[in-house]
Amino acid sequence: MATRETPREHVTGTNTYPIGIVIPTYNRVDILQTCLERLEAQTFKNFEVIVVDDGSTDSTPHVMNEYRTRAPFAFQYLRQSNSGPARARNQAIKNLDSTTCLLLGDDILASPNLVFQHYEHHRLHCEMEAVAVGLTRWSEQGQIVTPFMRWLDRDGAQFAYGDLLGGLPPTWEHFYTSNLSLKTDQLRLHPFDERFRKAAMEDIELGYRLSMNNRLTMSFLRDAVAEHFHPTTFRQACRRMVGLGASAYLLGKIWPEHRPKPVSTSRLRFRTFLQQSWLLARLTDAADLWTQIRVPNPLMQRVLSLHSTLGYREAAQRDGS
């Protein structure tokens, strides 16, 4: 199923740079500075950077305005009211003066050759449909990578790089904007859906939309390596799963084929019973303790699923469905 594209403002630059880097940020000024320092150390230098501040309440505005006076590359700092990374990226893309857009996260630390790997791929693949996803792995510096964090990546609960490293061809399901590049004009013609106000599934929705319109040819760049600095506990993952559930509801509303399959009435009632705040809190406590001993474990996976379906159900209720 394909949806009609809503016409958007299309700003055509002179394409001064072969590649431009877009980084949305929100209240992560310390790691954002490290992210920019890693870009300063790139072997390939001919690029621009746009940071879009999604309404940060920390010192991001002060630090970025100061950085703008000394940045060693073309640098823009934009700011918007808190509206989510989808809108932030769209604002940056309108201001790019580059043929290719590289999308990074503010907690992504690029290896010295990352920008060159993306640049070279698009130099060799000039077609509009070309998309490249790089390899993102946990940073081993400054954070303790727990067994739970390794499980998030290894088993695809957060990413599925293990499958890509194993030779699986990438698809729209691997449209990870933590380390992803595509043509700037493609993003102007097909922007992120700004109804997604959280950093959850706004990228996957765009990847799916492009694939449905035959506008997506994915490649995996295993040498475009980035380190992800984002210490994550089980409880933090539970909170994220609520947001993912809400985004999953929106995805199913836009693309009905992605709605979850109906479950039996008795199963639905049991799941709703488990999602009562007092009971879910106790289940989460128990799963958190068990996860500190053994990963994975059945309760951990079940509780994460409950938080996801809770977010889905709450989003449906807010929408009146």
Rank of each mutant, 00 (worst) to 15 (best):
A2N: 08
A2D: 14
T3R: 11
T3L: 09
T6M: 11
T6S: 12
V11A: 07
V11Q: 12
T12S: 15
G13L: 08
P18Q: 10
I19V: 15
G20D: 03
I21W: 00
V22S: 14
I23K: 08
P24C: 12
P24S: 12
T25R: 07
Y26L: 15
R28V: 14
V29G: 12
L32Q: 07
L32K: 06
E40T: 13
Q42M: 03
F44W: 11
F44K: 04
I50Q: 13
I50L: 12
G55H: 10
S56N: 07
S56Y: 15
S56E: 10
T57K: 11
P61E: 15
N65A: 10
E66P: 06
Y67A: 06
R68D: 07
R68G: 01
T69E: 05
P72N: 12
F73I: 04
F75W: 10
R79Y: 06
Q80A: 00
G84C: 04
P85T: 04
P85Y: 09
A88I: 02
N90S: 08
Q91D: 15
A92F: 12
T100R: 01
L102N: 00
D107Y: 10
L109P: 05
V115W: 04
H118G: 10
Y119Q: 02
M128E: 14
E129D: 09
V133N: 07
V145T: 09
A157Q: 05
F159T: 02
F159A: 08
L165P: 07
L168Y: 01
P170E: 14
W172S: 14
H174I: 03
F175K: 09
F175A: 04
N179G: 10
K183S: 14
Q186M: 15
F196G: 00
M201K: 10
M201R: 05
M201C: 06
E202Q: 08
E202W: 06
E202I: 05
D203R: 09
E205Y: 15
L206A: 11
L210S: 00
L210V: 00
S211G: 09
S211D: 12
N213G: 03
D223S: 10
R235Q: 11
R235T: 12
Q236F: 03
C238I: 05
R240C: 02
S247A: 15
L250H: 00
G252A: 05
K253D: 08
W255K: 05
E257Y: 13
V263T: 15
F273V: 12
Q276K: 15
Q276W: 12
S277R: 13
L280M: 11
R282L: 13
D288Y: 11
W290C: 02
Q292D: 15
P296A: 11
N297H: 14
P298I: 04
M300L: 05
H307V: 08
S308G: 11
S308E: 13
D319A: 12
G320Q: 04
